[in-house]
Design a protein around this nucleic acid. Structure first.
Length: 520
RNA sequence: GGCGGAGUAGCUCAGCUGGUUAGAGCGGCGGAAUCAUAAUCCGUAGGUCGGGGGUUCAAGUCCCUCCUCCGCUACCA
């Protein structure tokens, strides 16, 4: 087993069905997880749902059910989405689990033992109807000299007892963290925002609520449940067995990467490290705030009615096509835009035409002309060596480097360069012409391409796992070759000399024909 | 208001610490090929690098200013 690698997604708040944004994050995390496995790392990948809080409680009331039943039901949709999209999580956590309550209470007690929690009053403008506090600056005039909430509901000055966390005590240590470890928070633009936020001054953070009870109880403080972020963030530890520091899974801590959306960067880059410092737990190595997915350039929202169901997209375009599109088309870290046209175009151009067709033309040529027997190598020429060199640079250097830096779309560009090189090589070598003039050379060319196609499939497997596996299985590529380190090993000749024969292939990625209007 | 990003070929974007004729992919156009999913390959497209000013032998690449868009500016997750 290689060095451990722990990656997490944010846990989703399931007060609605999963949308494409959830799918995007899960897929991106899965690609990174699969890539690290391909690099030989011992990977632990966690995702899940954050089911506590007021909104779930309200939703449950609306639906005349219990919050727990609602949480179980809604979480199932998220789990199904992950399964449908080939998201290879090792642990799907739901914050209503007993283990999670224990972990949250343990970290609470650790913070309390460190003297960072104290009981005080939380005061503010409270709207009974909204069940929420508003800041002075958020209030709007009601036209009659009074103030109302942004929703137009009446507010009253309310005082509630609350536990507070001494966040202000961590300002300097947090700034030192960002300074000394710029990689802790990425992309850079996010770090800048957080640095300026922290520099502007931190106040103690209210970390408990008494107005509802759907959450983790504060130990020894009846009537208080934890403020959602204490509980939610702790999920990353729960999944490893915390507070049992001797749990075999604790070897995965500290996490290598918390992959989250840009909207919750502050909680992960300010509150979370402060909580951990307080509790005496090592900090995660990196928090990465990805961008949002826009529907044809517009923000998705229920009111506009442009929220897209990821399952429907997967059904329409294929799971691997969707995965590939999201990673290739969106510059990781920035917002991205998608549309049925864009997905179809990208999937057709890169997967169907360039890569799929490459595999199809070569494998069917072998099946047809050599009865499926893998061709022998009769000495490589400089042209073959040049192709192998191009592949090595693209697949064993550039792509891993880019993926390692979370420059996912750039990694895929490197992969495409290798695909292009293979197609150019096919046309230059023209095995169909060699068939008549130089059958031995034709065999070498086909063998070279066979190896190349396998390498391409291995390198891209984190992104299009099902298709890559199907292709590699069809080609008889041994399992131990299927890694970045293994793809360059000497596996071809033994396979060619065995009695393996390749059957007539079917196109890997059928071309997507878009219905006249739209497909999603 | 404050802080921080962004504005580069029709589209999506690369362009690090300033330096030969500003790049890629897609689309478009022309050609080649015919093994393959009408897929592939080759060539091409001449964009005031948001406007203006400045520094420099030399600026998308640094400085100033203006315009446009976006993000952050704590307790809804």
């Amino acid at each position: 087993m290689g060095e451990s690698y722990y990656i997490t997604t944010a846990i989703s708040y399931p007060n609605g069905r999963p949308h494409i944004g959830h799918a995007y994050e899960a897929i991106a995390a899965d690609v990174i997880a699969r890539f690290q496995r391909l690099m030989g790392r011992d990977v632990r990948f966690q995702t899940g749902t954050d089911v506590h809080g007021l909104k779930m409680l309200q939703k449950a009331r609306e639906m005349d059910t219990t919050p727990r039943a609602l949480a179980d039901e809604m979480s199932q949709y998220f789990k199904e989405m992950c399964d449908r999209l080939d998201v290879s999580y090792d642990r799907f956590i739901q914050t209503s689990e007993d283990e999670h309550h224990r972990a949250s209470q343990a970290i609470w007690q650790a913070m309390e033992a460190n003297g960072d929690l104290y009981l005080d009053r939380y005061e503010g403008w409270y709207s009974v109807r909204d069940e929420a506090y508003y800041g002075e600056d958020e209030l709007v005039e009601d036209g009659q000299g009074g103030k109302v909430s942004p929703q137009g509901t009446p507010v009253e000055w309310t005082v509630e007892e609350s536990w507070f966390f001494r966040l202000d005590q961590y300002q300097d240590r947090l700034l030192a963290l960002y300074e000394e470890h710029p990689e802790f928070l990425q992309p850079d633009s996010r770090r800048n925002e957080i640095v300026s936020f922290v520099k502007s001054g931190l106040r103690p953070l209210s970390v408990s609520r008494t107005s509802f009870d759907w959450g983790v109880e504060v130990p020894g403080s009846d009537g208080h449940v934890m403020y959602v972020w204490v509980d939610a963030l702790t999920n990353y530890l729960t999944g490893l067995g915390y507070p049992d520091m001797d749990s075999p899974l604790m070897k995965y801590w500290p996490a290598d990467l918390h992959l989250i959306g840009k909207d919750i960067v502050r909680f992960h880059a300010v509150y979370w490290p402060a909580f951990l410092m307080s509790a005496g737990i090592p900090l995660p190595k990196q928090v990465f705030g990805h961008g949002f997915l826009l529907n044809k350039g517009e923000k998705m929202s229920k009111s506009v009615g442009n929220v897209v169901d990821p399952i429907a997209l997967a059904d329409a375009f294929g799971v691997d096509q969707l995965r590939y599109f999201l990673l290739r088309e969106v510059s990781f870290g920035q917002d991205g835009s998608y549309s049925p046209e864009a997905i179809a175009q990208r999937a057709n151009a890169d997967l169907a035409n360039s890569f799929g067709n490459l595999a199809q033309r070569i494998l069917s040529f072998i099946a047809k002309n050599l009865d499926g027997a893998l061709p022998a190598v009769h000495g490589h020429t400089p042209a073959d060596a040049a192709l192998f060199a191009t592949l090595e640079v693209a697949l064993q250097r550039d792509l891993p480097q880019a993926f390692g830096e979370l420059a996912l779309s750039q990694g895929l560009e490197a992969w495409m360069r290798a695909v292009f090189a293979c197609n150019a090589y096919v046309d230059e070598q023209a095995p169909w012409a060699l068939k008549k003039t130089d059958p031995e050379r034709m065999q070498t060319v086909l063998a070279t391409l066979y190896i190349a196609i396998a390498q391409l499939a291995i390198a891209i497997s984190p992104v299009i796992p099902a298709s890559a596996k199907a292709l590699l299985d069809h080609m008889g590529v041994p399992d131990d070759v299927r890694s970045i380190a293994g793809m360059g090993s000497h596996w071809y000749s033994p396979l060619a000399e065995s009695d393996f024969a390749i059957s007539t292939p079917k196109p890997l990625f059928p071309r997507i024909e878009l219905p006249a209007e739209d497909a999603a």
